[in-house]
Amino acid sequence: MSAPLPKRIIKETERLQNEPVPGISAEPHEENARYFDVWVDGPDGSCYEGGKFNLELFLPDDYPMCPPRIRFLTRIYHPNIDRLGRICLDVLKNNWSPALQIRTILLSIQALLGAPNPEDPLNEAVAKQWKENQPEAIKTAREWTQLYAQKK
């Protein structure tokens, strides 16, 4: 039906399953090996601690020349993630390198949860709150984690 899977994707998938990254899982779909079901744990000490976040990840045809497409499915209160779950992260855009991998990208996303950057916002409203009243923003982020994320 579709072209054979490139060696690169086969190797990456194998490694993701044989040597999983702690706190991150990525399972390819049975019917589409380019589509991954991803779960990322909120980093300890962050306002997302205790929650498991669901993401979808897709490897386009020109992967790895182009970055994977990835978005949050679980609702999350974060200045760099918009309501549709899209993520503002340099390595997913200008700083993508074909030498980067799914696992490195997922680690970057986890790191972004630990260090929100309201100076480069994707979600203006959340970023504004983050800058003007950080304690309140963090409280909301915790509440949303309780409300929408899966318990760890």
Partner: peptide, 8 residues
């Protein structure tokens, strides 16, 4: 040598 991009 293994190429990090294509894994050849």
């Amino acid at each position: 040598f293994m190429c990090d991009i294509c894994c050849e």
